[in-house]
C-alpha cells in the first residue's frame, strides 16, 4: 500500500496510507463540529483536502485568482528582535513592504502589551509618524490587551490566578472587572495617540490570553475607539479557539463571552466595530497534520460563513493547522494556507 509523506502537529515527518489520511481528516472535522456545534466538512471538501495533502509537490499554492492579503502580529520586529538582525523597526517595515511584498504590517513594542506602551506612547508615536511618511502599504499599531499585566506586584489589582485556587471566586471576579477598566483606558489612550500619528489602524492581538475578561476589555475599548475615530481600521486577533471562562459571567451586548468559538466570537467583534477579525484554531501537536488541517478548516469555514467583515485566519506556529515548531515546514504551512483559503474561504491570513 502506498504511503504518503505528511507531518505530525509538532512538525515531525510521518508516512501515512491513503486510508489513514482519510480517517484522520474525518476525525478532525468531526472533532471541530462536535466542539463548536457547527457543520462538518462535506465528503467533497474532505476529498479536496486529501488531494492537497498527498500532492507530490513540496510547496503548494492557491488556484490563480484566489490570492489573499496578509496582516501581521508583531510584524515589525520579526526581523529585528526575533531574527536578531540589527535593524530598527521602521526600517524593518520598509523591508517587509519593498522586499518581502507584505500587504500590510503592524508596528509594535517589544513587550507587545498596551499597558507597557502607555508610558512610552510619545516615542512610539514618533516611530509611527516616520513609518507613515516612508511607506505605502497600510501600517497598523499592534499590541495585546494582556490583562495579566494589571495584577500585583506589577499592576494595581489582585491576581485572580492566585485567588481562584484559594476558592476566592468573588474576589477573583472583582479583580478582573477592575483590570478591565484599567486596560480599556490604556487601549483607548494609545489608539488616540496612534490615530494622531497617522496610523491606518489598530491591531488588538492575542485577545483572550487572560480569558474572557481579556476579550471583554478589548471589545469595550474597540467600541469606544470606533465611536471616537470612525475612520480608523481595527483588527482583532484571538489567542485561542475557545474563550476561557476565567471570570465566567462577563457579557458583551447580552452574550456571555466565555465559551465562544470563532463563529460566535466574530459576532461580538462586529458588534464592537472591528473591521478585520483574526480567528485562531489551536494545533494539537500529538495529532497528525491531516487531523489538525480538517479541524482548522471546519472552524474557519463556520467563522467566515457567519462573518460580514473580512476574516484573516491565524496561520503561524501552533495555530491554523501549522505545526507547533519555531520553524514551521513550508510544505505544511502552504497546504494549510491553501485549504483555509479555498475551503475555509478566509479573506486573508
Amino acid at each position: 500500500m502506498d504511503k504518503y509523506f505528511t507531518r505530525m502537529g509538532d512538525g515531525s515527518p510521518i508516512y501515512l496510507s491513503g486510508d489513514e489520511i482519510r480517517s484522520e481528516l474525518l476525525e478532525g472535522t468531526l472533532d471541530a463540529a462536535d466542539r463548536g456545534k457547527i457543520a462538518e466538512l462535506s465528503p467533497e471538501e474532505l476529498d479536496y483536502l486529501f488531494e492537497i495533502i498527498i500532492s507530490p509537490v513540496n510547496v503548494t499554492s492557491v488556484v490563480r485568482g484566489k490570492e489573499v492579503v496578509t496582516s501581521s502580529d508583531s510584524g515589525a520586529f520579526k526581523i529585528s528582535y526575533q531574527a536578531n538582525i540589527s535593524m530598527d523597526r521602521a526600517t524593518a517595515i520598509q523591508v517587509h513592504e519593498k522586499v518581502l511584498a507584505a500587504d500590510s504590517l503592524d508596528l509594535g513594542n517589544i513587550d507587545y502589551s498596551y499597558k507597557a506602551v502607555k508610558a512610552i506612547l510619545h516615542d512610539e508615536a514618533k516611530v509611527m509618524e516616520n513609518v507613515q511618511l516612508n511607506t505605502i502599504m497600510p501600517v497598523l499599531y499592534g499590541a495585546m490587551p494582556n490583562l495579566g499585566l494589571y495584577t500585583r506586584p506589577d499592576g494595581p489589582v489582585d491576581n485572580w490566578s492566585e485567588l481562584l485556587p484559594k476558592g476566592k471566586i468573588v474576589e477573583a471576579r472583582a479583580a478582573q472587572e477592575e483590570a478591565i477598566e484599567h486596560a480599556v483606558k490604556d487601549m483607548v489612550y494609545i489608539a488616540g495617540g496612534m490615530n494622531a500619528a497617522g496610523a491606518d489602524g489598530m491591531n488588538f492581538d492575542t485577545c483572550g490570553a487572560s480569558g474572557d475578561a481579556d476579550v471583554l476589555a478589548a471589545l469595550k475599548a474597540i467600541e469606544i475607539i470606533r465611536d471616537k475615530y470612525p475612520a480608523l481600521g481595527i483588527e482583532m486577533g484571538m489567542s485561542g479557539e475557545f474563550i476561557l471562562g476565567m471570570h465566567g459571567q462577563l457579557e458583551f451586548g447580552g452574550t456571555r463571552v466565555a465559551g465562544l468559538y470563532p463563529h460566535r466570537q466574530v459576532e461580538l467583534a462586529e458588534k464592537a466595530g472591528v473591521t478585520i477579525f483574526g480567528p485562531v484554531v489551536n494545533t494539537n501537536s500529538n495529532k497528525s497534520f491531516p487531523w489538525n488541517l480538517a479541524r482548522a478548516v471546519t472552524f474557519i469555514k463556520a467563522c467566515t460563513e457567519a462573518a460580514s467583515i473580512p476574516v484573516h485566519a491565524n496561520v503561524g506556529m501552533g495555530v491554523g493547522a501549522t505545526p507547533m515548531t519555531p520553524v514551521p515546514p513550508a510544505d505544511a504551512v502552504s497546504r494549510a494556507a491553501k485549504a483555509l483559503i479555498e475551503i475555509g474561504k478566509a479573506d486573508g491570513l
Binding site: 496578509t70 519593498k98 511584498a101 500587504d103 473591521t275 478585520i276 473580512p310 479573506d347
Partner: peptide, 21 residues
C-alpha cells in the same frame, strides 16, 4: 497577495478601512 508588487496593499486598505470581504 504581493503588496506593492501587485495590488495587495490596496485590497488590504479597503478591508481595513471599510470592512470589505
Amino acid at each position: 497577495m504581493g503588496g506593492i508588487r501587485t495590488a495587495g496593499d490596496l485590497v488590504l486598505r479597503m478591508q481595513l478601512a471599510k470592512g470589505m470581504k
